[in-house]
Design a protein around this nucleic acid. Structure first.
Lengths: 198, 198
DNA sequence: GGCCGTATGTTGACGCTGTCAACATTAGCG
DNA sequence: CGCTAATGTTGACAGCGTCAACATACGGCC
């Protein structure tokens, strides 16, 4: 119980992460301040250092959380026995864009230089795993006849560019200007469908 | 001459901008500190406030510089009499990606929420001009027969996603992981060529 | 050529931040 | 029950952005 003279918060670790995600989603990475989060949680200004050695560590932990979710979803799609390689590739793309839309904070962190500069090897390794999975699926889909006249490299770059672009369009307010509002879910799907049906 | 007991810097305004661009290119927006820039330029910590009321104003001024360059290049392409609407559209896409590669700092600023949140109306208006120019070209190219079976909206979203994605691939170190190094110029061109030759 | 207003730069202060060290409290295990 | 480690607090420090008060020098005007 937390009713005892609440000297200890109970689950400060998770609370720090949760509040930081809220703040990032609302106002971007720069609106995160350890001291303000500590105040919000009714805890002293130095309490966070007991759970994260530095602000960067907190942000990195959140980023890692995001990469894990992304990779796990990708692996589950890739493990499907019902889908063709092309189907898996498409599921991967949909999964990525959907993930960015559902987790804007994690997506933002992955694109923050200050955060990723201090990424540990484990995190980078997971990103590499994701990339290799995607590349292998492109090779397999090509071998199965899809766009076999186009180079694997070109297809890969097209997919990465499209998904990265779509991820930003759903997560970054900037693109509400050229698009006239946030893109609808079915508009996103149409872009992905069009690409994979050629 | 600046040899006189250099109390005045001479061109601090431009020097501040130049140094900030350097820092952003190297380490992202968060590595900009007015005080450190002032030190680098051999000037007191408060000198920058004589030229920019706040740090945000400095960053915004740089962003505006970038948008101006982008828009000007786009208008010059659009004004060409030799190119078809499709050709202009392609030149616009190439121009955007090339601009992001040549001006990573400006590109980063345009994607920074903290910066763009305080963007003035004039800046937003220019972005809207760019977007409308692009949209008009899509409509015209379609009217001239290019992909007239595909909706204008879908084509527009495809172009925005592709160019935004490519811009990141050339400007953001993160994508060196899945791509195995920075993308080559001709690889970028191939992606753009492929899209506009359908 | 000298004078003066204003643009530009300096100094010192304020409250904010992240991080550390020293200390306080409590949880949980033997 | 008592001890140790985990967790939280307090106070300090330097760096940051910004402001106000003061200093200097540039450039147009007589």
């Amino acid at each position: 119980m937390t009713r005892s003279a609440d000297y200890h918060h109970g689950n400060l670790h998770q609370a720090l992460i949760a509040r930081a995600i809220e703040l990032i989603s609302e106002g971007g990475v720069e609106s995160v301040s350890l001291r303000s989060i500590a105040r919000d949680l009714g805890v002293s200004h130095a309490a966070p250092t007991r759970h994260f050695r530095s602000k960067g560590d907190l942000l990195l932990a959140i980023a890692a959380e995001g990469v894990d979710a992304l990779l796990q979803a990708a692996l589950s799609h890739a493990g499907s026995t019902e889908l063709s390689a092309l189907g898996k590739l498409k599921a991967l793309a949909q999964g990525y864009v959907g993930w960015a839309k559902a987790n804007p904070a994690h997506h933002l962190l992955l694109r923050n230089r200050d955060v990723m500069r201090h990424a540990n090897e484990q995190l980078k390794e997971k990103l590499k795993d994701y990339a290799q999975l995607q590349q292998a699926l492109v090779a397999k889909a090509r071998a199965e006849g899809w766009r076999s006249d186009t180079s694997e490299r070109l297809i890969l770059m097209q997919i990465i560019a499209m998904t990265a672009g779509l991820a930003f369009m759903v997560a970054d307010p900037l693109y509400e200007v050229p698009l006239g509002g946030k893109p609808e879910e079915d508009e996103i799907q149409e872009v992905i469908n069009d690409f994979f049906s050629k």
